[in-house]
């Protein structure tokens, strides 16, 4: 901590006036939180979207592209979050996570598989010591509409079953009605319940609607101790978008400048193609910087993205366009 404090005097003053980087004075109650969060610089929608779009026109070629595809594969949280999930499905998915392209041993594994808590044990068993993490969506995912003790039990259950990472959802109702303290306390409590597991905090940005809210939620989650901030559950449209991710990347960049603490970012849902993934990586590189170009700091929550990455990877190595028949479904 505090190994990389540079200057961002506005937020610095903002933090200082609110009691310094330990956030105690900011997070005391709804009023102090509102003053802080609403004092953050606003986000102009049109400007943010234009910036995201312009980054999307960056052109990546050859070697950089090969490197980017492998990186993107390593950043994938390969996800299945369906009512119809079965141990068989999760085992297959886990196998795919470890060896995305069975025909090519140089193909890296994904970062994690992401499942519901009751599937953690199955995933863990399959993944073993492969290094692929198990992430579990907890806290009454996706709506988060349950009592706190149930959310905590959900979390503890997943951790006990072997989850390395917990993807929680914030209480959007509380957030939108200004009960920031409640949202904050819940994140703190879930983080505690995580024990050694890393915590990703899902905002469901499609429900927060404005970029101002996304920026505020980002700071709230970072102050509360989340290791990652994550856009969406994948169950609400729009899910991850480039501009939402842009705003979150700006937030983690600014947060590290203030506190020295680096927080990860995970866009989830709606990222389907290699082209999309590379646009995200360009954005990570230009907004947060290349410190974030690592699976420890940036993830893609996705299911179908992986196969497109694999197809493009094969194209780059063989020079031949592949087809879906040549890659496993899960």
């Amino acid at each position: 901590m505090l190994d990389r404090v540079t200057s961002s005097p506005t937020i610095d003053n903002h933090l200082a006036s609110a009691g310094g980087a330990d956030f105690a004075d900011i997070t005391r109650n709804d009023d102090t939180l509102r003053r802080f969060l609403h004092g953050l610089p606003g986000v102009d929608q049109v400007g943010a979207e234009a910036r995201a779009a312009s980054l999307g026109t960056r052109s990546i070629k050859t070697t950089a592209k090969a490197w980017a595809i492998d990186l993107a594969i390593r950043m994938v949280d390969l996800t299945t979050l369906e009512g119809q999930d079965t141990p068989g499905k999760v085992r297959a998915l886990s196998a795919k996570a470890m060896h995305p392209d069975p025909a090519d041993p140089t193909c890296p594994a994904t970062a994690a598989v992401c499942v519901y808590p009751d599937m953690v044990a199955v995933a863990k068993q399959t993944l073993g010591t492969s290094g692929v993490h198990v992430a579990a969506v907890a806290t009454a995912f996706p709506s988060g509409r349950a009592a706190l003790d149930i959310k905590l039990a959900d979390t503890e259950d997943a951790v006990q079953a072997g989850a390395d990472e917990i993807d929680m959802v914030i209480d959007r109702g509380a957030f939108l009605s200004g009960r920031y303290k409640q949202v904050y306390d819940e994140i703190v409590a879930v983080r505690e319940a995580c024990g050694p597991a890393h915590l990703k905090v899902i905002f469901e940005t499609g429900e927060l609607q404005t970029y101002d809210n996304v920026r505020r939620a980002s700071w709230l989650a970072m102050m509360a101790g989340g290791h990652f901030i994550k856009t969406s559950t994948g169950k609400v449209q729009p899910a991850a978008t480039l501009p939402v991710t842009l705003v979150m990347l700006e937030a983690v960049r600014d947060f590290r400048e203030q506190t020295g603490q680096q927080i990860g970012v995970k866009p989830a849902g709606g990222i389907k193609t290699t082209k999309d993934a590379i646009k995200y990586l360009v954005m990570v590189n230009e907004i947060a910087g290349d410190d974030w170009l690592d699976p420890d700091w940036f993830r893609f929550g996705a299911s179908t993205l992986l196969n497109d990455l694999l197809m493009q990877r094969t194209k780059l190595t063989t020079g031949v366009y592949s087809g879906p028949d040549y890659f496993t479904l899960d």
Binding site: S59, K61, W67, N285
Partner: peptide
């Protein structure tokens, strides 16, 4: 968590 620098720079080819 300390910041970890990746070894490969993300260079755009011409």
């Amino acid at each position: 968590m300390a910041a970890k620098k990746t070894s490969t720079a993300f260079e755009y080819a011409p």
